[in-house]
Design a protein around this nucleic acid. Sequence first.
DNA 1: GCCATGCATGACACCGGTTTCCGAATCAAG
DNA 2: CTTGATTCGGAAACCGGTGTCATGCATGGC
Lengths: 349, 349
Amino acid sequence: MSGNDELGDGFRREGKATINDVARVSGVSKKTVSRVINRSPLLSAETRERVEAVIRDLGYVPNPQARALAMGRNFLLGLLHDNPNAQMVLNFQEGVLEAIRDTEFALVVRPVNRHSVGMLDDVRHFLERQRLFGVLILPPISENDALAALCRELGCRYVRMGSAALDDEAHLVESNDREAVGQAVDHLVSQGHRNIALIAGPEGFRSAQERRNGFLEAMARHGLSVGPGRVAPGNYTFDSGRAAAERLLEASERPTAIFASNDEMAAGALHAARQREIEVPAALSLIGFDDTAIAAHIWPPLTTVRWPIISMARAAAYKLIHPAEAKQQPSRFLSDLVRRASVAPAVKQ
Amino acid sequence: MSGNDELGDGFRREGKATINDVARVSGVSKKTVSRVINRSPLLSAETRERVEAVIRDLGYVPNPQARALAMGRNFLLGLLHDNPNAQMVLNFQEGVLEAIRDTEFALVVRPVNRHSVGMLDDVRHFLERQRLFGVLILPPISENDALAALCRELGCRYVRMGSAALDDEAHLVESNDREAVGQAVDHLVSQGHRNIALIAGPEGFRSAQERRNGFLEAMARHGLSVGPGRVAPGNYTFDSGRAAAERLLEASERPTAIFASNDEMAAGALHAARQREIEVPAALSLIGFDDTAIAAHIWPPLTTVRWPIISMARAAAYKLIHPAEAKQQPSRFLSDLVRRASVAPAVKQ
DNA sequence: GCCATGCATGACACCGGTTTCCGAATCAAG
DNA sequence: CTTGATTCGGAAACCGGTGTCATGCATGGC
């Protein structure tokens, strides 16, 4: 390779070729090299090839810091997330990475704590300091309007992921949780279930509201009533799901199916059923939401709703990178039901 | 705030105060402002205060790109990981973030695919392009020596996470998997188990080797033999765990306990046992490894080995940021056994 | 009273790109 | 052969910081 002097600790000194080296060696000006890099059309093919050869020879790679400084913007996308669901966050990262692969963008992650009082200040510091190109905001903190306002104030582009209309199309990628829950209920009803209970998510979450409303609407659509004993609150954790299921299963007329607002709570519900020696799915059908890793790995494998998070991530990243075309990109994504083994036809009690 | 003109799209133009503005307003030179920012000791208290007041007034925040360019290094840490275990990756991110909170560092993530032929080139492109301050490498790709060599070649600092001595102390943070598996075996033996089987991890993984060796050593220590029918290969996936368990459970003299080299395979084994109507833990005890989310959420909750990943991440980030003191930082971390409900005393068959 | 000393500060080049503006070369038309 | 348009390439300023070195000033020792 090109002359690298070694440091004591075995690392090469910053002896990388610069645009000046390329210009000197190929006998053109910096600007011409810059044009080659940026694929400017007004260049003779001959010059371009000559410079490109030198670039290869020298192993030249443009310095992103210098570019960022000169162009007044960098190529860093931020990911702001709280962390209820590791698999989801990681899948999202995956999707974003797919979108920015082969570009000069990189992804900077920043977990935040939605319960900390200093959360907004934290994010403010982060954004001011790093001057990111833009940020992607994951639920549940994507539902925080103050956060979006902060981004606006700081001049930071953003896209929110959500389960309802939180913002205009340019700043939002959403899944239709409500409709998806409808499918889940339809499926249960088609299997003959009439006494269906809901384990709801935490009040503050938009996704929880949507899933609850989707459930209630679908039940109403089928002409099924949902008594007060048929809805139990949860907070998206395993334990809350177990506790909620215990309450539901105590009811005089036991439900034959439970829809849990996420997989973790469904797993908790399964746990509760097993302790009461209620067979799943023979005596109790169960549907979850999110299709996290856990859904496929419990017994019986959980029927659940999968939302296309990787596609959504890709779309979100794309919106962020190409703000001009953001509104053309799809904003709404459809989830679908993954049928596994936790649902069976209802039996008469 | 300081005069911001708005763009059509509602975002503030890059009208942030620069070091020049601060210098002009406070009547000192750029350099002096720079000294204030960098807490240089040779400054009169009076000047410092005056400049600091102006900085506050103007809401000035130094531009990291400019700093990076001038200083020849940026403040970005990279995280290279393959993705068998979302919870682990995310916990690791958390630990790193803890370490760099309140510093100017940020974390850039980069999932890579260890099975892709172009993996090394991929990483090379990434490192050359982004010029990170350094990278953290997670297992299993941390075991790839070519990757470490690449970092050296490119002059990129690195720290590898691993389960064995992969590198020198300055570039490694390791967990003692071998010893931890020993504890797991001890526990099983103390419960009266003698016929203990192993579901091994994939050949290529150092962690798998360590866990296998730890198992064999511990069994030998207890004077217990491990016949060929007592070790089944797996590849860290749920399905491979199930298949391995099926083979083990077919043996003429069935094992009374199985140690699986990770939780996912343990979950698979549980699945297999259930299909054969073998009660866990009554008729079969099970221990996993990693203490991922799944361990606590299956039934029965899985006894498993937890390694202190957040502490390890913190140490790794610290080593990366302070290379001079890297060797003083701890490199070896102890894992411990989390006792849940998947182990019971052995019964005579 | 003078010069060496030390401390606080400033002038200026520099990091490695991009952008603006302008000049040179080429070529067709007059 | 000259003119004008067009294409291509270069010089220099600029982005916003940091490093080097020089300078002014107060201090102190002789």
